[in-house]
């Protein structure tokens, strides 16, 4: 069996080597990938979407449909974790396992620092979300930072401390709302008579926005949806994994 595996991996490696012979040279400005569609994105992004960060305009507008499904991949992962791990009946495992209290003493330094730093983390997360139009950042990154601030609470206090601030129900609700914001903006475009996710028709309902600016607002809207969804799902996955689906003390 090992020999078969070795042969397979070896021949795959050789095939990949063989393929690279025909590749354009590394970082070649004349390669097909930098000549076909990329120039359009780089040259037209300001004119067409009013977003200076090309990554954001490709991610949330030109290929915004992919991003909507990528966000739902994260949502799917969260729901999958809940489906597989979450235990609603409480007493089942505890019959066999005696209650072990290996909990570390609460550390005053860690808890105080966390208390001070969490608001700043969240503020920074909001900055990352809002500033995705002009600098590296956006919904995914900001959402992860927001989620991390809650997870930091859970690590330095315990899971209960986090759940007091964002309960399981609220968390799942936020996950769904985040994605409903994204797909809802897309569906709104259909209701206003354009194709799905064609933000330019949003100028009909956003006061004093041109069609191009409407695209920029549309992107901001979906980034906010992504951020909410990513935050909620990060928290849900952490809570389930750390407490084995029981939502009690956590790690």
């Amino acid at each position: 069996m090992k020999a078969i595996g070795l042969i397979t991996v070896f021949s795959l490696g050789m095939a990949l080597f063989y393929a690279t012979i025909d590749f354009p040279p590394w970082a070649d400005p004349q390669s097909p990938a930098s000549l076909h569609v990329s120039p359009h994105y780089i040259q037209e992004t300001m004119k067409e979407t009013d977003v200076s960060n090309v990554v954001t305009s490709v991610l949330a507008d030109y290929r915004g449909f992919d991003t909507m499904f990528e966000t739902s991949v994260i949502f799917t992962a969260g729901i999958a974790v809940i489906l597989i791990l979450r235990k609603y009946s409480k007493k089942e495992d505890e019959k066999f396992l005696p209650e072990v209290s290996e909990e570390a003493e609460p550390d005053i330094i860690i808890q105080t620092v966390t208390r001070i730093i969490v608001p700043f983390i969240q503020l920074f997360a909001l900055y990352v979300i809002a500033h995705g139009h002009h600098s590296p950042g956006g919904g995914f990154q900001g959402g992860v930072i927001l989620g991390a601030s809650f997870i930091l609470l859970a690590i330095s206090f315990n899971l209960k401390a986090m759940l007091r601030r964002i309960s399981e129900r609220k968390d799942i609700l936020l996950g769904g709302i985040g994605l409903l914001i994204y797909s809802g903006i897309g569906a709104l475009c259909v209701l206003l008579g354009a194709n799905f996710l064609n933000y330019k028709v949003l100028h009909l309902i956003i006061p004093e926005a041109s069609q191009v600016e409407a695209r920029s607002y549309g992107i901001l809207g979906v980034e906010i949806g992504v951020a909410i969804a990513v935050m909620a799902i990060m928290i849900a996955i952490y809570a389930n994994l750390s407490s084995d689906g029981k939502y009690d003390k956590g790690l």
Binding site: F75, L173, G175, G176, L180, A187, G193, N195, F196
Partner: peptide
């Protein structure tokens, strides 16, 4: 309001939106 040209998108988008609505409805 919604033209016939938009019908293909509903094939995909309706179950997609429904997934999140179901997730939220399940809470209530």
């Amino acid at each position: 309001m919604i033209s016939a040209a938009q019908i293909p998108i509903f094939i995909v988008i309706v179950p997609f939106l429904a997934a999140f609505l179901i997730s939220i409805a399940g809470l209530f």
